[in-house]
């Protein structure tokens, strides 16, 4: 496999893994925000959405402080299980997860909000507990939005740059992702390589946005039959 395809493969699987990892927490956060009110909810909403509007480099710096050897989590992992986080593929994973989490929550929350709560209420009167209501009513009725949001979160992870370069660097064969490699190729004047990687990035992004958007545009069961 050529080095370029290795970069593409690495970026794709780490993005897929980061998306899978944030899915349970993303579903839970989206459901809580869509279905419940509590004091301080707006604070939680703001915190969840923060990576979406903060400069990615700033988010990366926070991650570096947390995941570095002298950071709270990074230090703990280094001392206890001899596992380094910063400047490894795990840091790429963490950066992608943090940066795509708000997007996932945003789309899935909208999908949950579209499900008529009457279905869930009647399921409860039929004897269903909260888990059963969630998995047999809410998720199946919101699945298009969940899939669409997941694909768009994956697309966001694929293109992640600022936070990744801060916390994971751009180490060839270890942390070099598609975006980082495009940047590096341009810096080194390797225009042909940059163009090839750019073409792949455009195709991947186009496919992800198109497929994700298709799911989001499908009619969900907003109304009662």
């Amino acid at each position: 496999m050529s080095q370029e395809w290795q970069i593409v493969w690495f970026t794709a699987w780490v993005s897929a893994l980061s998306t899978l990892l944030i899915l349970p927490a993303g579903l839970a956060a989206a459901w809580l925000l869509a279905r419940h009110d509590w004091p301080g909810k707006s604070l939680v909403e703001t915190l969840v959405m923060l990576p979406l509007v903060m400069p990615p480099v700033a988010t990366g710096l926070i991650l570096l402080k947390v995941l570095g050897r002298r950071g709270l989590l990074g230090g703990f992992m280094h001392d206890r299980i001899h596992l380094d986080m910063a400047f490894t593929w795990r840091a790429v994973l963490a950066a992608q997860a943090v940066m795509s989490f708000p997007l996932l929550v945003m789309f899935v929350r909208a999908a949950f909000a579209e499900v008529n709560p009457r279905f869930e209420q009647i399921a409860r009167t039929l004897g269903a507990g909260e888990w059963r209501v969630f998995f047999s009513i809410t998720v199946p009725l919101a699945w298009r939005g969940i899939i669409g949001g997941t694909i768009l979160a994956f697309a966001r992870a694929l293109g992640e740059f600022g936070a990744t370069i801060m916390v994971a660097g751009n180490i060839p064969g270890q942390t070099a992702t598609l975006s980082l490699s495009i940047y590096e190729s341009v810096q080194l004047g390797q225009d042909a390589t940059a163009f090839r990687l750019l073409s792949i990035a455009v195709v991947l992004a186009f496919a992800a946005v198109w497929v994700g958007g298709w799911f989001l545009r499908q009619r969900s069961w907003r109304s009662l039959p």
Binding site: F119, I122, A123, T125, W221, L224
Partner: peptide, 14 residues
């Protein structure tokens, strides 16, 4: 143990 038939019926469409 209360059966509820709401006005909109809320039959699960899926």
């Amino acid at each position: 143990q209360i059966g509820y038939v709401p006005q909109d019926l809320a039959l699960f469409p899926h």
